[in-house]
Design a protein around this nucleic acid. Structure first.
Lengths: 155, 155
DNA sequence: CTAGTTAGTTCTAAAATAGAACCCACTTAT
DNA sequence: ATAAGTGGGTTCTATTTTAGAACTAACTAG
């Protein structure tokens, strides 16, 4: 990240720091849970509302935000009466690594492993997976020691 | 995730879904920005407060939460007068993949690439890195098609 | 023409956040 | 001495966000 003075939440979406920009869209208590539901194939308002226990007001607001950010697409699945559902766009599907990283972290950080009752497994073999980040260009692992953030001036 | 009735934020920390548990710690507007500062080597209260523009009240609260969650360790760096600083624990360092995933997503999702002015580069070569998740056990890429969430009963 | 469905909106009360001032335990400069 | 920092907080009030429950709109089905 780059220091350019204190930030307001309003201009966070245009902050030079990508972490800040990401959080301007998905950085609140409910948004990633809504996205998770979408990855589970849940598309309808009432179903999300009931499963999450989120208030209808906040759910409507988050869905609008996600649609505006291009993460979800709102589309009518019937006419007369017209009813809408929400689906992940490509940009939404690109959040998969964020979700996987959150799952991996939570499963060995909070609470300790024994209580963790949802894990990631291979769809083909059913074996547990052990996600790690590597650089696709070189194949080397990505850690705080191997990478650093760099500011790119101009454009 | 697993459906076990609507959730309250109080028991989110013990939810069977790891996404919910992760968000109970880092799922708000400021927390990952505080963590980001720590990865940048910022350790002191006043410095974080000034760089982020977060209110002192909220910063104190988040630091407490992160300490309670074992993400940060608060330690005195001098006596007379005693002054404290915050450092990432191993559990905190384990959030690195979450941060990297957020950066990667933001850089090609919000806003479009040309304005993105902070990127990840290799510390050794300076070359841009292209982070992807693979399964350390098999070497195969992790995508929504290759993995799925599984509930593990009992314990 | 009554009841049901489903994606929302509109209320009020409670909780979280912003912004600014203050406090405490010192150290350093006058 | 006394005055002026320093730095990690706390304490206020005002504003914003969220919770919770009720209500709409636009229909369809009995």
């Amino acid at each position: 990240m780059v220091y350019g003075g204190p930030m307001k939440w309003n201009d966070l979406g245009t902050d030079p720091c990508p972490v800040a920009r990401a959080l301007s869209v998905i950085g609140d208590r409910w948004t990633m849970l809504v996205v998770r539901e979408c990855f589970f194939g849940i598309r309808r308002f009432d179903q999300m509302q009931e499963r999450l226990g989120i208030t209808r007001h906040v759910l409507a607001d988050r869905l609008r935000t996600l649609e505006d950010a291009g993460v979800l697409r709102r589309e009518a699945y019937q006419e007369r009466p017209v009813r809408y559902e929400y689906r992940l766009t490509e940009r939404g599907k690109a959040l998969h690594p964020v979700l996987v990283s959150l799952i991996t972290w939570a499963n060995d950080a909070v609470p300790p492993p024994e209580q963790s009752s949802v894990t990631l497994v291979s769809r083909s073999t059913g074996a547990p997976v052990n996600p790690v980040l590597i650089d696709a260009n070189t194949g080397t692992p990505i850690t705080p020691h191997t990478v650093t953030a760099q500011r790119n001036e101009g454009a």
